[in-house]
Amino acid sequence: MRNWQRIFGSCCSALVVACGARQDAAPPGSVITVRDAWARSADSGAMTAVYFTLANTGEISDTLAAVASPDAELTEMHISTQHGGMMHMSPVTSLPVPAVDSVMFRPLGAHVMLTRVRKPLAVGDSVSLHLTFVSGQAVEVRAGVRQP
């Protein structure tokens, strides 16, 4: 441990950890973590959406390039948009996650859309997602089911 860390003591350790990527421990590429994942409840065979926050604590931008789930017949990245007083939903093939930044998948915005879910999704259940990034990183996500 460096001297200045010892001097500041434990009260600063959280800060040091948070800033680690900017200090000497800079990772070689992007470092993706997923938090606050949840899925909307759905009947078996229905469509539903999964939401989460992607954080890239690394110093290189990355791009979410593929989504997959064993819990639905079809898994796609989607974005809801509003124009001309209408709501639309469109598939997107990739989504950038800038360096030292985060991207929220949330209602009325981006979501992972599950089409024809293979089982009923009720509160207390969960779904699995497999996210693949251009960097080659893969992240497994478990999203708990919530009431709409």
Partner: peptide
């Protein structure tokens, strides 16, 4: 069958 906007609004 709306997975995002309708359930958000109904919620």
């Amino acid at each position: 069958h709306c997975p995002d906007v309708c359930p958000t609004t109904m919620g």
